[in-house]
């Protein structure tokens, strides 16, 4: 389901979840596919939510599960969150866990500055 839309020379990948709704129905598939990327050495990830209109608690669980797996050896940031997704990040304090950017370009720029 996931689609990689960009890969920079620095090894930063922009990934779209490839669904409008990241929910209990597809969260574990999303997580597995993302983990396969990580296991493939791609652990500097920008998850681009431009196409995602709805994220439920299971979707959030998958994101955090991914973050736990990557741990300190990589980066996971998010960008282009819809209003309701942003609201959910705020209520669950995930805005303190995931750095969030307005668009993919600024997320990639920010990751390039992190070494």
């Amino acid at each position: 389901m996931i689609r990689m839309t960009e890969e920079t020379n620095e090894g930063i990948c922009v990934v779209s979840p490839g669904t409008e709704r990241l929910t209990a129905a597809n969260a574990s598939m999303f997580k597995e596919e993302m983990l396969a990327l990580v296991d493939d050495g791609k652990d500097r990830l920008v998850i681009d939510f431009s196409d995602v209109t709805f994220l439920d608690s299971s979707g959030l669980g998958a994101l955090v599960g991914l973050l736990k797996r990557v741990g300190n050896r990589g980066d996971i940031v998010v960008c282009t969150l819809a209003d309701n997704v942003q609201q959910m990040f705020r209520i669950t304090r995930m805005n303190k866990v995931f750095a969030s950017y307005a668009d993919a370009a600024s997320a990639v720029r920010a990751l390039k500055e992190r070494v």
Binding site: G61, R90, I91, T92, R93
Partner: peptide, 13 residues
Amino acid sequence: GDGGFPVALLDSA
């Protein structure tokens, strides 16, 4: 309230 971490999601919460 203005939010807070869910339970059992992060050990550092």
